[in-house]
Design a binder for these strands. Structure first.
Lengths: 252, 252
DNA sequence: GATCATAGTCGTCTGCCTGACGATAAACAC
DNA sequence: GTGTTTATCGTCAGGCAGACGACTATGATC
């Protein structure tokens, strides 16, 4: 195939972000309201065009910072604090996914601890954390009784894929700690698993499992009582990234 | 962000293919020789531009058919024969990955049973199955004593990611059957695992494990003796796609 | 201050799965 | 027949997970 610039059609390339966090025992995703057509007024995933001199991961990190103020976690610096986990998810390129033009979107998945409040260009009403089931239900009515419109474009599919990735990845990696603050208790980590998987876990077996997995948790020495009840030990994420044996997701 | 066609730079979008198979107890990948600069004469992964009206998966399936004659396995037809498994792998978009222009490549992973012979535009000398370690070694000398040049572009990284995906995915899915013909024996399936993982497995424990996992294998009733020794039962891939519990890859 | 509710932590027991490995079965080569 | 190769069945011990009892340490309530 000789090199011929007219031999290939031009594409626009964007990054879209599935930013997940756990709030009030529910897995939530960041959604922004679209200000212009198509899908004006509908909720969508945050994202934007990749710039001419930018790598895909850079573009995703830039969008993440613009939308949330989060810095992306550099994989080369595992002990970095307050950085969000960011990884490529999948690429969506259906010719009709954007009615305006041919857009290929490289979706990324970000996991963040619970954050104060979202921002989207400074306008809080145009960005929110919403439970993923609420964003994924087709039509129907949300918790507040208002009608729910599906996400713009193919973003329901992207969000669904991102949630599934997160659900499976916390099984065999220490990624669940990305949902926790720098220091956290075993109970807080358990509530992350329960929210992401949507199941209840036995606190005793969970405690035995996570404290017995080498490299998963490192005790800081401190304790906290912010959950009420007996004070709990505080931990930081250990160096291990892959858990062997993995956490087991209960059968449905 | 208002819609402004001049606000985004144009990209070329390609699909690159990591086509894996098991030949002579070794994990092999399809490589094609580049006929023009850049990297003229070097080996590369097969691939090509995505057309204007084509989905990414369609483009990957078309390239796969052009290079190997394989039809992609439609996930909606699980019992389809002789179709190769095809899935999206990852997307590579470093601004300098192609010296000519800005190219974003959506890599796909294909798994195929052992095939007669590769073809690349009818010229067999420009396409071959090569063991992945041979393609991935940087410089040095191959089995035949000839100097080995690294793969073109970032294809070593793509191939490495594809191999790692395959290695981990046969742990928890029935994907290893994609390397086998329609009917196969437990021993043949074991040799697939051994080649992909590069380890030796205990035949007795392997047999117990795979025949005891519901939905993994379905006996066809026939037997074969094509491996020599006692005749072995023939199986087809069962309906299960996810293995629970998974196959365990031995520690290094 | 006693009592209660809440949450955390340590143990025990049982069943299942895995790895190691012995034994037998059925073909082919000589 | 003997040896070789591959397939298949069985046995046994160790480890891990699920179920669940027991105890500890805090704050809330009376």
């Amino acid at each position: 195939m000789p090199y011929d610039p007219s031999a290939f059609p031009p594409f626009a390339v964007t990054v879209d972000l599935v930013v997940l966090t756990v709030r009030r025992h529910a897995l939530c995703a960041l959604a922004v309201r679209r200000g212009e057509p198509p899908f004006q007024g509908r909720w969508a995933l945050p994202g934007g065009f990749v710039r001419a001199d930018e790598d895909l991961a850079q573009a995703a990190a830039r969008e993440l910072a613009e939308e949330t103020g989060l810095r992306a976690h550099d994989p080369a610096v595992p002990a970095q604090d307050n950085g969000a986990h960011l990884e490529q998810l999948a690429t969506y390129g259906d010719p009709k996914r954007d009615p305006r033009m041919r857009v290929v979107s490289v979706a990324h998945l970000a996991l963040a601890p619970d954050l104060p409040a979202p921002r989207a260009g400074g306008d809080a009403s145009n960005a929110r954390w919403a439970p993923v089931e609420e964003l994924l239900q087709q039509g129907g009515y949300g918790r507040d009784g208002e009608p729910v419109a599906p996400l713009a474009f193919d973003h329901a599919q992207i969000l669904s894929d991102g949630v599934e990735r997160a659900r499976s990845k916390i099984e065999y990696s220490s990624l669940a700690t990305a949902f926790c603050p720098t220091e956290f208790t075993v109970g807080e980590l358990r509530r992350v698993y329960e929210a992401v998987w949507g199941v209840a876990l036995d606190p005793r077996n969970f405690h035995r499992k996570v404290t017995g997995t080498p490299g998963f948790l490192v005790p800081t020495g401190g304790t906290t009582t912010r959950q009420g009840g007996r004070p709990a030990q505080l931990f930081r994420a250990g160096g291990a990234t892959l858990l062997n044996p993995p956490m087991l997701r209960p059968e449905v």
